[in-house]
Write a protein that binds this DNA or RNA. Structure first.
Lengths: 169, 169
DNA sequence: GTCCGGGGTTCACCACTGCGAAACAATTCC
DNA sequence: GGAATTGTTTCGCAGTGGTGAACCCCGGAC
């Protein structure tokens, strides 16, 4: 969703509806005005005059917050997995696995459930699931999604942890 | 919780721990540096030189956001310990310990109670509890949680104290 | 004061298990 | 034929739970 630029306080009458609609917005605060006091993460402001790179950085942050906020991956009927205006095609088995993972996005899906989803008549071998999870992982990486392992419990689909630092291994 | 001011990028090495601990922070961006790209609502930045009122306004916003988020850790059915939009998976024994500690979040839980929770049929050795508490401590550190010892009484789970201690004994 | 002991922390090590990953073979689809 | 897809084997590593031992800190005995 696009960030709306609003002059503050000149154009403040738009603000109420923008806030209500959840539209991300950047307030351009004139040299003589006091900055606004809002705690909404989708609202930010800059003091004028401002450098271009600073305005762009704040717009980018608001865009990222808006995108991260309500974004859910979806699986269409053609086997395409869509997430934030990008998509990848999945193979039949991968698609079945993705169905279960997307259905419970952000929560753990047991190996057993995944196995039954992909092979209702019984999985070929234990390792087959591991390998397909591995392949699915590599495909969805470019969407900014990741599958985390919860040892002895299952797998969990979520947005990829980006700049998180300090993780061993 | 107080907002921490950090020079950027000079003091960026502190940043990782501040982010992990969920401490609200304002980055002071030097005239020659590019602004950081973080979407965390508890992080903001100002371009130097900055007016006092602008810095104060941003600090106030961060404080308000931090105050609004007095979150409690929760343990879901899959053995995941969630706290403030992050989570870690716990091993079976750690999960049992965490159940007791989360249940009485902020209060002391006796060693005896923890031991019975983890090993209903009797703990293997006296040291086992200590070791598992140690391992649990390290795991939850990245969530911004900590386990404090109350000598000869037990342990207590709380949000990690980042600077000086806040409570007298 | 010094010494000592209980309580607590941390480390190194072991056995065991679950999962990751590469490499290869077999099959299907265009 | 060539690429994609699927299944299989094999190897190795990382997570897990337990144990013993060294160490540290604090408070009480002397």
């Amino acid at each position: 969703m696009d960030v709306v630029l609003v002059r503050w306080p000149e154009e403040s009458e738009h603000l109420t509806e923008l806030r209500a609609a959840g539209v991300p917005r950047l307030l351009l605060v004139g040299p003589a005005s006091a900055p606004p006091a809002a705690t909404d993460p989708l609202e930010d402001w800059v003091r004028l005059p401002a450098e271009d790179r600073d305005v762009r950085a704040r717009v980018a942050t608001l865009e990222a917050r808006a995108a991260a906020g309500g974004a859910l991956p979806s699986l269409d009927d053609d086997g395409l997995l869509r997430y934030r205006d990008r998509w990848v095609s999945l193979s039949p088995v991968e698609r079945l696995l993705a169905v279960a993972l997307v259905e419970r996005y952000g929560a753990v899906v047991g190996r057993e459930a995944l196995s039954r989803q992909a092979w209702p008549d019984g999985a070929p071998t234990r390792n087959a699931l591991d390998v397909h999870i591995l392949r699915l992982r590599r495909r969805i990486a470019e969407l900014g999604l990741e599958i985390r392992t919860v040892r002895s419990r299952g797998y969990l689909l979520q947005a990829a942890a980006t700049g998180r630092a300090g993780l061993a291994s």
